[in-house]
Design a protein around this nucleic acid. Sequence first.
DNA 1: GCAACTACTTAATGACTCTAGGAAGCATGG
DNA 2: CCATGCTTCCTAGAGTCATTAAGTAGTTGC
Lengths: 198, 198
Amino acid sequence: MARAGLTAERVTEAAADLADAVGFENMTVSALARSFGVKDASLYSHVRNLQDLRERVALLAAGELADHIGAAVAGRAGKDAMTAFANAYRDYALAHPGRYAATQAVQPDPAVLAGSTAYIRTIELTHAMLRAYRLVEPDLTDAGRLLRSAFHGYITLEVNGGFRHSRDVQRSWERGLDGLHILLENWPADPSRHAAEQ
Amino acid sequence: MARAGLTAERVTEAAADLADAVGFENMTVSALARSFGVKDASLYSHVRNLQDLRERVALLAAGELADHIGAAVAGRAGKDAMTAFANAYRDYALAHPGRYAATQAVQPDPAVLAGSTAYIRTIELTHAMLRAYRLVEPDLTDAGRLLRSAFHGYITLEVNGGFRHSRDVQRSWERGLDGLHILLENWPADPSRHAAEQ
DNA sequence: GCAACTACTTAATGACTCTAGGAAGCATGG
DNA sequence: CCATGCTTCCTAGAGTCATTAAGTAGTTGC
């Protein structure tokens, strides 16, 4: 009985690669076992179940994404940082569609989430990037949500073939970033805030 | 052998309801058959396969969504139309998560798409709404893509629990719409266009 | 060189998709 | 009233997948 040398980490890595290759929803325990040349049941020594495997892939990907963005925005500020952030985000998602899908499709349970900084780091990077636009809470959160939504929505639509018009997607994206920069520079004052400002 | 009186339409409707109830990815042929009190195989007289069923649900939902938005924006213009559009979009998605997921998860093949106006209508409504902001091509397409991305991204993140901060999501959404309005009013001129303007 | 642990196996169950072939309901024309 | 034929639904069965239980064969610690 030859041993394949599996570990939870190696299984997770392979699962992530498989997801990138065949799509996150086609990343099955069976296919993964096949890629290792072992039986399905063997994987259950390393991973609790499919849900657990997906969570692991999601955390792996969220960490990689945060690293990628972090490296891109380092030493930049303002529009420079914003576009670097956006392009890093999009590049990662397009290069690793299965991994990216994992970060979105899986909502890890709070306990797992608390033990990992992967998800939180991206949000922190967003806030850091937005501070150059002189936004303060709650505008920071609101603008951050809108930005993440725009990035995520754009990529999802792009990957799923939502942009059928002939207009070049890359050029469209760049123009969208120009627009978002303008938006951040002109972020409207909250009409419902009077006393709160210091 | 009592007949259940199934038709493709009735099956599609029930599938859409089931998707809303249990989630799009849990909308199975088996569960659907069970809800009708018939055997799995019986459904294959009305629907080619699971993929076909999903496409039908997607087209149904896309049509409903377009109707809903169309009714909301009728007789409105400018910011009024934009927020009506956005709120109709979000309301539908939140009220019918399974149907909405279908519109995103399924990319119907081009032949099916050509035979239906469901998807195209939403894009046309977007363009109509944007014309009040005096945008012309290709800005119309670029701004439209950014808007759809922002709406879609926001809703996806909201539904998947992506907004974990304590800040009220509804208020955040409204502020995001304020921001998008400002953005559309200040849509930047394309620096790469010189000769093209008349 | 034995005990304990771990990695991987076989075997089985139950959910699911889908096909083939058959029978029972329902309409039509004689 | 009945034969014809279409449609609706059935039974039966194959193949994929997730998951568990129980066992066996490497590997490690003493």
